[in-house]
Nucleic acid binder design. Structure first.
Length: 264
DNA sequence: TCCTGATCATAT
DNA sequence: ATATGATCAGGA
């Protein structure tokens, strides 16, 4: 049997999560019925937004263990050495184009997929990685040309109940929702981006800490603290610095959740 | 407890 | 080394 079983309410899921975790729609069964592991693995990327959202609804309420079983994937014992596992499982489950290409997860739709780990109150557990920060050769770049702006222009957020106390296989996939920044969100992002980029281009990278920015922050994004990449020094001279990435602060993604699912 | 800095796997 | 996917972990 595939993932037909009735959705069992998990003890981890509190009443307040009703808005986040919908029961598996009945039609889901029809949708995945007959899908072999091979078919799922080679599933074509969705061609329309409706198709994508339908697939997304099909995953809501499932545990990672259930989805992994569908896809013939082994659930790791911990994520310490497989931090991107859940995100990649969800990519596969939704038919996102595989690999680490520098393009949206759903190129035809211009949609970026982001899993969003949350606790049982619907609060994000982590910041959200957006993209690497260019540290050189970007003095002329404008906000609308930036990777951050492009990456965040259309995002499919997929909440995932992922408190560390919950075994990985029991973590529950939530209801995905599409987001495009509204005017005020856009402005907050642009403001932070411009401030951070100005510091970078003027040689202030070593002054930037995670606390900078209202919604967007710059933090290390590297194999380890010894990794180096080209950057601009305090006097404009070329230096080597720790590679950085842009991240969305969890307070920001929390607001997105509130907008999508309401207060309560 | 939370947040910032550090880190892990994989593909190109 | 860079880009993809993120979470870990300890000091404030």
């Amino acid at each position: 049997m595939f993932i037909l079983g009735t959705y069992k309410k998990k003890s981890h899921v509190h009443n307040t999560d009703r808005c986040l975790f919908m029961q598996r729609p009945k039609f889901l069964h029809v949708m995945l019925q007959g899908c072999t592991k091979a078919r799922l693995k080679t599933m074509k990327s969705p061609q329309t937004l409706d198709e994508l959202m339908l697939r997304c609804q099909a995953l809501a309420g499932l545990t990672l263990g259930q989805l992994a079983a569908e896809l013939g994937t082994v659930v790791p014992n911990n994520l310490k050495q497989d931090k991107g596992w859940a995100g990649q499982l969800l990519e596969q489950g939704l038919g996102a184009s595989a690999g680490s290409k520098a393009e949206p997860d759903f190129p035809e739709l211009g949609v970026e997929l982001k899993t969003l780990p949350i606790d049982s109150l619907g609060k994000p557990l982590e910041s959200t990685y957006v993209c690497v920060a260019p540290l050189t050769g970007i003095s002329q770049q404008q906000w609308h040309d930036s990777w951050v702006c492009q990456k965040l222009s259309k995002v499919l957020w997929l909440p995932l109940l992922a408190e560390r106390s919950i075994p990985i296989a029991d973590r529950v996939i939530g209801s995905g929702f599409l987001w495009q920044p509204d005017a005020s969100e856009q402005q907050l992002l642009q403001q932070d981006w411009e401030e951070l980029m100005e510091l970078i281009t003027l040689g202030g990278i070593d002054q930037i800490r995670g606390a900078h920015g209202q919604v967007l922050q710059l933090r290390p994004k590297a194999a380890n603290s010894r990794a180096l990449t080209a950057a601009v020094g305090a006097d404009g001279q070329p230096i080597q610095a720790l590679p950085r990435g842009f991240y969305l602060k969890s307070s920001f993604t929390q607001q997105l959740l509130r907008k999508a699912f309401g207060q309560s």
